[in-house]
C-alpha cells in the first residue's frame, strides 16, 4: 500500500530533475567534519567536470582549518554508501552521478579539530 487513502491517490514529487533548469541536485558529506552541521546540496550541470565540482566544494568548506590541507588525489570517495573512484577529468554524468545522488568523501589524516571528527 503506497498510501492510506479513501480513493486512488497519486502524489507529485516536488524535486524532479526537470524542476532544476538543466541542473541536477547532488548531495555531499565531508566525513569527520561535523563543524558543517549537515550534508551540502549542490545544484550543478551534469556536464560539469568532476575536477570543477571539487573546486565548488572546496569553496564552501574553506572556513574549516582542514580545508586548505586537503590533498584531493588521496581523498577516499563513496557514492550511495559504496566505495567509488571518480575521474576528475570526466563530467559528473560520465562519472555516473545522477539526480539526487549522495556522495561522501573522507580525507585521510584529516579528521577535524584535534582529530575529534568536528
Amino acid at each position: 500500500m503506497s498510501v492510506v487513502a479513501i480513493k486512488e491517490y497519486v502524489g507529485v514529487p516536488r524535486d524532479l530533475e526537470a524542476n532544476y533548469h538543466g541542473n541536477i541536485m547532488t548531495y555531499i558529506t565531508w566525513e569527520k567534519h561535523l563543524m558543517f552541521a549537515a550534508p551540502f546540496i549542490f545544484p550543478v550541470p551534469p556536464s560539469m567536470l568532476f575536477g570543477d565540482y571539487i573546486k565548488a566544494i572546496a569553496g564552501v568548506i574553506q572556513p574549516h582549518p582542514d580545508a586548505a590541507k586537503i590533498d584531493w588525489s588521496k581523498v577516499e570517495w563513496r557514492k550511495s554508501y559504496q566505495p567509488w573512484q571518480p575521474d576528475m577529468a570526466k563530467t559528473l554524468a560520465e562519472n555516473g552521478i545522477t539526480h539526487k545522488c549522495h556522495m561522501s568523501f573522507r580525507t585521510p589524516g584529516l579528521d577535524g579539530i584535534r582529530g575529534l571528527g568536528i
Binding site: G11, D15, H21, P43
Partner: peptide, 20 residues
C-alpha cells in the same frame, strides 16, 4: 516507505531554492 505516495510531495525548503 509505509506511505511513499504521501511523502514524495514534501516541500523541502533547501531543495526549493535552486528551483527558483
Amino acid at each position: 516507505e509505509n506511505e511513499p505516495e504521501k511523502y514524495i510531495q514534501a516541500w523541502l525548503p533547501m531543495n526549493q531554492l535552486p528551483q527558483g
